[in-house]
Design a protein around this nucleic acid. Structure first.
Lengths: 190, 190
DNA sequence: GTCTATAGGTTGATAGAC
DNA sequence: GTCTATCAACCTATAGAC
């Protein structure tokens, strides 16, 4: 019945919130503990290491990204609609899960070696799904015949720091949902 | 006549090289010293603090960016050519000064409070020059009539991590110089 | 102008009392 | 399951010998 029982979930959520604004290496276990009104040692009753917190934040979101692009990939809609849906997924996550999203984008490099390799593999898997959609679109003439790696780069980088910019400019979600895909696609579509 | 005299310039150059791959906070003075085959204490004969190294890297490049956009701004060419030139400036710097470029983009937030404020002011100054060009283009009908902040965001974010991607994909500079502006502008121009 | 030694602080993590 | 106390390692920076 305690109002604020310490749990893995609380620790992970609060950590993501803190990693968003000051990176993984800058936030100490003492900082996280202080924000949860406990002492650092107490955290270790719920999680085994600082690394584990990072892994929980990042890999949960990785699964969400892969699930959603797979979903889009399997729909019976045209290529342009697929790309819009993928872009909107990124905007949705950037706005509605900004803490985990920022941590994934900024702090994946602090994953321990083995986990970092897993992350990179999953990212390549994601990019390959996107590449399949793009090359399929290029065969149909639905997408401009340009180096698909450059197209993917342009799509993904502009979406990677949306959470920062959203915070700074205070744009409405539905404005972004309309305008960003348009700006990306007019460069991608013939 | 020593082959490798320690100097401010050596220290700053080597530091930028290291900050590119592991951020400012992750690279210690001992690391920098080791890479230069001296002991950490020796660095302090040439620079006053770790902060000073960061400032030298970042503000040198800030001046280059501002000089170059001012230059473009004052030319007698049409708006589209101005935008292409600005984009190409970013690509040029990302490719030819990748270390300072990465440090500026990733580590400006580690500048000490006062210097960070100066940096932010200079960045706003830069973005305002870009905004002037864009709104002028919008009056002429040369640029799509869309929120200029979103246009600037799209232009700048896609250029901010070019150095990483360039490294990963091994694209040729002249390919990027042609294709990236095209991809950005087809989303900006009517 | 480089070195050793060290001050004074931080870090992630653990041992063991309660 | 939280706490205090602590370890061992690291950090930036300085003092002072050479």
């Amino acid at each position: 019945m305690t109002k604020r029982a310490l749990s893995r979930k609380h620790i992970v959520t609060k950590s993501a919130e803190m990693f968003r604004h000051r990176s993984f290496t800058e936030v100490s276990m003492r900082d996280i503990a202080r924000a949860l009104n406990v002492k650092a040692a107490s955290l270790y009753n719920h999680i085994s290491s600082k690394q584990e917190i990072l892994e929980l934040i990042i890999f949960d979101l990785v699964e969400i990204f892969i699930t959603r692009i797979t979903n889009t990939q399997n729909k019976n809609i045209d290529i342009e609609s697929k790309l819009i849906e993928i872009i909107q997924t990124h905007i949705d996550i950037a706005i509605n899960q900004p803490n985990a999203f920022a941590t994934l984008n900024n702090d994946w490099k602090y994953l321990a070696d083995e986990k970092k390799q897993v992350f990179i593999s999953r990212r390549i898997e994601y990019e390959n799904k996107l590449k399949q959609i793009i090359t399929e679109g290029q065969k149909n003439g639905a997408i401009r015949d340009q180096n698909p790696d450059i197209i993917i780069y342009m799509m993904l980088t502009s979406l990677r720091t949306l959470h920062l910019w959203y915070e700074r400019q205070d744009q409405k979600q539905d404005t972004l949902m309309k305008q960003i895909p348009k700006m990306i696609l007019y460069g991608v579509l013939p």
